[in-house]
């Protein structure tokens, strides 16, 4: 079984302000987009980030072959328990997720 990162062109995460994290999955092709859009459930993304599924905003954008998730930042940017000021590392956790 391949990892998400091996199927798509790029997984990128960034802060969307100090209180939100946003993850963009650039699938690259319509085929990969369909595979990710159908195969990656929001519930699974919630488990990766140990958050409540109901707080996650999801966008499946066929025109760009992009699947995007936005979620409350696992810790507020720069708070004592924050480990990544710019939120860019979080993409790796999703990229390493096995996908059918």
């Amino acid at each position: 079984m391949a990892n998400l990162g091996q199927i798509v062109e790029k997984v990128r995460s960034k802060n969307a302000g100090p209180f939100w994290l946003t993850v963009d999955i650039f699938c690259g092709t319509p085929e990969a987009f369909v595979q990710v859009s159908n195969g990656l459930t929001t519930a699974r993304v919630a488990r990766v980030f140990a958050t409540d599924e109901a707080t996650i905003k999801r966008f499946d954008i066929a025109a760009l072959n992009v699947v995007k998730f936005s979620l409350p930042r696992p810790s507020i940017q720069g708070a004592a328990d924050d480990r990544d000021m710019h939120g860019a590392s979080w993409a790796a956790l999703l990229a390493e997720l096995p996908l059918n």
């Binding site: 302000g17 905003k57 992009v66």
Partner: peptide, 16 residues
């Protein structure tokens, strides 16, 4: 069109 429209994703919690 791809690089421009994709920029709406960047550091935005809602791309629209």
């Amino acid at each position: 069109p791809h690089t421009v429209s994709a920029h709406m994703l960047y550091e935005n919690s809602d791309p629209f």
